[in-house]
Design a protein around this nucleic acid. Structure first.
Length: 215
DNA sequence: CGGGAGATGGGCT
DNA sequence: GCCCATCTCCCGA
């Protein structure tokens, strides 16, 4: 099945996480994300990311330094940082900076690939394929992620990242402002695949070759 | 149908 | 009090 194609893809090497954070935010587009727990395996392709640049970025959790909640952001790169948002939803980040720095990339949307029934089961109500992983809170719910996986290595069995099954061209990547921010609202640090229906929402500001908007 | 308002509710400051 | 989200309800096209 399609999962086999994903599983044949190599894990992202440690060198991947030595690029700067904005490069990683772009390079994560098209990568496979696989999770596994007692319930089974779920997987998808990353189609939307946002970069958060730590102490340079007022919108970053790490802006004011480390605390108990954001500790994982200051841990080693290639690990998860998962936090509770609005008291209800979890959001998944990839730590992208050396220990002690605190930069990360938020995974905002996936194209669901495998374990669709399990994803549905984890949702409170039936949703369309498009809605399964469209949004950072939705994808963690569908993938069965919570604070339990905070700080995990991204080449663990429970959660891992794979190189893109199909290479992504830079011209298929759009940049826009990040979603839902009041601070640093004009930084164009959100990246997503052009014309991809699984992307979470229409951006306020876009730079890409096509003028056509999404959906 | 899509967009907007309002409620939700934990942890940080 | 504020916040990197989502769901539901309501409105207009």
């Amino acid at each position: 099945m399609i999962l086999d194609n994903l599983l044949k893809q190599p894990l992202l090497p440690q060198a991947f996480y030595q690029q700067n954070t904005l490069s990683q935010a772009r390079a994560l587009l098209g990568c496979g994300l696989i999770t596994e727990n007692q319930e089974g395996i779920t997987a998808g392709i990353i189609v939307e990311t946002e970069a958060y640049l730590g102490s340079q970025d007022p919108a970053s959790h790490a802006y004011r330094g480390s605390n108990k909640r954001n500790q994982a952001m200051f841990g080693p790169p290639g690990h998860t940082y998962i936090y509770l948002s609005y008291g209800m939803y979890y959001c998944l980040n990839v730590v992208t900076s050396p220990e002690g720095i605190g930069e990360a990339v938020l995974i905002r949307a996936l194209q669901p690939v495998y374990g669709l029934d399990l994803m549905q089961k984890r949702r409170s109500k039936p949703v369309s394929l498009i809605e399964l992983c469209r949004g950072p809170g939705k994808l963690t719910l569908s993938l069965g992620l919570s604070l339990e996986q905070n700080g995990y290595s991204l080449n663990s069995q429970a959660i891992n990242l794979r190189q893109p099954p199909r290479p992504i061209s830079q011209k298929d990547i759009c940049a826009s402002t990040r979603i839902g921010l009041s601070k640093a609202a004009n930084y164009p640090w959100r990246f997503y695949l052009k014309d991809c229906p699984y992307v979470s929402r229409t951006p306020r500001l876009t730079t890409c070759s096509s003028k056509k908007s999404l959906r």
